[in-house]
């Protein structure tokens, strides 16, 4: 395992979506809060909205899909457990300390829910790492080829300067049971004279209920290994220097 002193991870997310035969009602978030309120004392509510727009000359149409999540936060608001309709999401915002630390947070939330709700099956599990990478500019520019092995490519007949970009790929694993979405986009820099990039790696179970619920934590361990390898595959040595790779 490669360790970086200056890790670019700004968020790690582990999200479970349970199968529709899992009994779930309006009291479930409250029951969960009763179990975890000592470590996660703050409560917020968050609406996930997926808005689709349809437009013609005289009619504007909108379809709004809404999911409400109860969000429980630790005292410093850096650790989150979110509970929605058959959804359990565990988030760790920066500073991200270690995989073992985050895994124990996942295990804690999963076990607490499992003690109070009979979880029948898992529709989807996702393990996502979001990295924000800031690179000092040279004459106002950053040469992506120097830092990334995963990047957008614009041929010689295309403009070579762009305001924004998104480069993405969906990789398949374990006979297409799992998939991993890797996406590199531009981002907003926090330091002066730098450009910023967001590298998101989201490994997920693509075939619903293809693993028993009892194997969820094993699946997550395996997913973490893939995410780590993909991250290393996306970056080049000059970035490792920026992240201050620890000597082995």
């Amino acid at each position: 395992m490669v360790k970086y002193n200056n890790t670019p991870i700004i968020e790690a997310v582990c999200e479970f979506r349970f199968s529709s035969d899992t009994n779930w009602d309006l009291t479930t978030p409250g029951i969960m809060y009763g179990e975890i309120h000592e470590e996660f004392p703050h409560i917020e509510q968050h609406a996930l909205q997926d808005i689709n727009l349809l437009q013609d000359a005289s009619v504007k149409g909108t379809r709004i899909n809404t999911t409400i999540l109860a969000r429980f936060l630790s005292e410093d608001k850096k650790k989150l457990i979110q509970v929605g309709p058959r959804i359990l999401s565990i988030n760790r915002l920066k500073p991200y300390h270690s995989w073992s630390d985050f895994k124990s947070q996942i295990n804690y939330a999963f076990q607490k829910l499992n003690e109070r709700v009979e979880l029948k099956g898992v529709q989807r599990i996702g393990l996502r790492y979001v990295n924000k990478i800031e690179i000092p500019t040279e004459q106002g520019k950053v040469d992506l080829e120097k830092y990334f092995d995963f990047r957008p490519f614009c041929g010689p007949n295309l403009p070579q300067s762009h305001a924004n970009f998104i480069a993405g790929c969906l990789f398949t694993y374990s006979d297409e049971r799992d998939r991993c979405q890797v996406q590199l986009t531009d981002a907003t820099p926090e330091i002066e004279n730098a450009l910023a990039f967001l590298l998101s790696i989201d490994y997920f179970l693509a075939k619903p209920q293809s693993i028993p619920i009892t194997q969820s934590m094993d699946w997550i361990e395996e997913a973490h290994g893939v995410v780590e390898n993909l991250f290393e595959g996306c970056i080049l040595p000059p970035l490792r220097e920026i992240f201050c790779k620890e000597e082995e």
Binding site: V13, C14, S19, D50, T66, G126, S200, L205, A206
Partner: peptide
Amino acid sequence: FLEQENDPTGEESVS
């Protein structure tokens, strides 16, 4: 109001 999507491939883990 969505309870569950049947096809998880088009979704992403909420960050």
